[in-house]
Nucleic acid binder design. Structure first.
Lengths: 168, 168
DNA sequence: TATAACTTTCAGAAATTATTGAAAATTGTA
DNA sequence: TACAATTTTCAATAATTTCTGAAAGTTATA
């Protein structure tokens, strides 16, 4: 397998992975391209290498910047903007966890908290429903606390901790 | 908020959560309905309560069964099939982790392993590309091992472990 | 300020995914 | 076996998401 075949394959795998963490396939392919590129890439180059339109390239790169996975970079003496991806996978993992918590889990918790059940109905079904809903709220909150703490641990502690934990 | 309002709200929240773990919104709503129901529900009842078609109800319930989140149940003397959801959230979380590992991470690892780079090209770009791809393979594999071990720990050990870990 | 290089936007087109509903298949019972 | 109750399938349709490309907007420089 030549290098460029390997690169293409990787980009396609990463692309199909995108849906797993809630981004479009093109956005994930742009991410993969920047991930395996040493040099910053311009919008033109991204369009060219992935055969996508200008609009699509632009919007994908913007979203990746919003996800904190990619940074804009201005080269001295050039008008064009260039883009680089964070290359450290541990940092990438923490960033994704952080973003998903912010985008998905926090709104979920807020929505769950809006459910206020009035306690008048004392039929067995009502009691049971209230119990179920409360359990769900507690469980999600627990998971979120856990995730929050994991994210806040810095990398130098997090990964050794996880591995030590699993050695036993 | 009346009980049935609370129930509807919960179903709608759970439904919009579905996309987070890669299932359709209807499938997640069916799951939520079964989660908050004490009694097993028939296809008819699911159709009725969620206002969805027979085909949709059938296929959603099948998928939930494939995800190991719902079980089929036959009442003595009745032809109709009834469905119940696992109610223990810890078990639900482990099941989802297990299924997603099987459906998403394992195929990803296999695909990554198919990337075999030939080592002839010794240009700096080629060396760097190979390094990046190798790093990615290692990182994903590490994450997968961690997840595998977490899944295999049984619940009585897993959750105390996680919480103890974070007390420090 | 005018120009050219570049970026952003967004309406419509294309592609993908989800849903319906009726017909076909299956199954338990008599 | 015949029947009726029930489940499953699937082609057609609807809904949603993604993508394009051209036009509008922005900005650095001369």
């Amino acid at each position: 397998m030549t290098n460029s075949e390997a690169k293409e394959k990787l980009i396609s795998i990463w692309g199909s992975l995108g849906s797993t963490w809630g981004i479009s396939s093109t956005m994930a392919r742009v991410h993969a391209l920047l991930l395996v590129s040493d040099d910053p890439k311009s919008t033109e180059e991204i369009m060219e290498e992935l055969s996508i339109s200008r609009g699509n390239a632009n919007m994908s790169v913007r979203s990746l910047i919003e996800w904190n996975l990619v940074k804009k970079l201005v080269k001295k003496g050039e008008r064009k903007e260039y883009f680089v991806a964070e290359k450290d996978f541990h940092k990438i993992a923490v960033t994704i966890a952080k973003e998903r918590r912010r985008r998905e889990i926090s709104p979920l918790i807020e929505a769950l908290n809006e459910i206020k059940i009035d306690e008048h109905d004392c039929s067995p079904e009502a009691i049971s429903l209230r119990k179920r809903i409360a359990e769900m709220q507690v469980f999600i909150k627990e998971g979120d606390n856990l995730l929050e703490k994991l994210i806040k641990l810095d990398e130098s502690k997090l990964f050794p901790l996880l591995f030590k934990m699993l050695k036993r």
